[in-house]
């Protein structure tokens, strides 16, 4: 061993000792900060990490009487059963039908609406419209389902108006096809106002100089929209679109759960409602946990990919 390497090693040891000293003295000076984080850490541990550990029940035939330790292990049996189970494949398809349609419409409609709203020149009018369209977002699905169940029933307002116009009454919530449309459009209706916020915020950052020089060049408002407004919305749209990829298995439990009924299970049942019924109502805890694990696992992959993409495209970071 030559002296240089030895000296290097000694240097490293010194640096390490110094680092440890600064870490220790930092701890001594800043212990209050650690104290401030720990309540949150403990809560995360109990209410997020313990349930993650509880996932072992997906590989057991869990019996509440026996607990996690004594329930028999069954390996991948629950998953083998699931993927051969007709209903589960239907549930997967329903989930994707809902989430993909919502994904597309919840980007396009707020995008278009933001551009149109931005054209309103009267500020007060603009702000009033804005406030009103945020309203449905804040109402819970229980409230909205209560309203929709009434308005869309065969004796409800919508059907009454349609009957008066000479159209046939439609069972919006009792027929699979109409149920799907109702779910997709009521979701868009609830959230488009809120989703507009980000686009409107992006539009306020567009420099007025761009419009002025376009004006001087003789471009009319339509051309200005095409060549200035829309391109300036592209970055935020890319962020929204990639981040939303992570939620593709979330078809919105609260909405479907409060609107559906046994008549439309075929076309309405989604992963989360399926977990609730099979796991909690029928008491097949392990099967429910297995479906939950499947969803969380695919979700983890999707979110990781979407954040990677968002970072690569636009340098977006959540913190």
């Amino acid at each position: 061993m030559n002296t240089r390497m030895w000296r290097n090693r000694k240097l490293h040891a010194g640096a390490r000792r110094r680092n440890r000293e600064t870490a220790l003295s930092s701890l001594r000076r800043n212990w209050v900060l650690h104290l401030m984080v720990w309540p949150a850490v403990i809560l995360f541990f109990i209410f997020s990490y313990l349930p993650m550990a509880g996932i072992v029940m997906a590989f057991q035939n869990f019996k509440p009487g026996l607990g996690f330790l004594n329930s028999p292990w069954v390996g991948l049996d629950q998953f083998r059963f699931l993927f051969g189970y007709d209903n589960f494949l239907k549930v997967l398809r329903n989930t994707l039908v809902f989430s993909l349609s919502k994904y597309v419409l919840n980007i396009l409609i707020p995008f278009g609406f933001a551009i149109l709203l931005n054209e309103v020149r009267n500020r007060r009018y603009k702000r009033t419209v804005q406030t009103i369209v945020y309203l449905p977002y804040f109402l819970s699905w229980v409230t909205l389902a209560g309203i929709l169940l009434d308005m869309l029933s065969t004796q409800g307002l919508v059907n009454t108006v349609m009957a008066r116009l000479g159209m046939e009454r439609i069972m919006f919530l009792g027929d699979g096809f109409w149920f799907r449309l109702t779910v997709i459009f009521s979701d868009v209706w609830k959230s488009f106002g809120f989703n507009t916020i980000l686009y409107l915020a992006a539009l306020t950052t567009v420099s007025p100089d761009l419009y002025e020089s376009a004006e001087i060049d003789g471009a009319n408002r339509f051309r200005q929209t095409l060549h200035i407004t829309i391109p300036s919305l592209v970055p935020i749209t890319v962020v929204v679109a990639t981040l939303a990829l992570g939620g593709l298995l979330n078809a919105n439990f609260d909405q479907v759960f409060n609107l559906y009924n046994p008549m439309v299970y075929e076309k309405a049942d989604i992963i989360d409602t399926f977990v609730y019924r099979i796991g909690l109502l029928s008491g097949k805890y392990s099967l429910g946990a297995a479906v939950g694990l499947f969803k969380s696992f695919i979700g983890l992959i999707l979110i990781t990919i979407s954040y990677r993409l968002a970072y690569r495209f636009t340098n977006y970071r959540i913190f």
């Binding site: 993650m52 479906v291 969803k295 969380s296 696992f297």
Partner: peptide
């Protein structure tokens, strides 16, 4: 931070949370 972020990415799901 990562201890916290991970709870946004992955969850035990409904049944284990109920059992807890």
């Amino acid at each position: 931070i990562w201890f916290m972020i991970f709870t946004m990415l992955f969850s035990g799901g409904l049944i284990p949370s109920y059992m807890l």
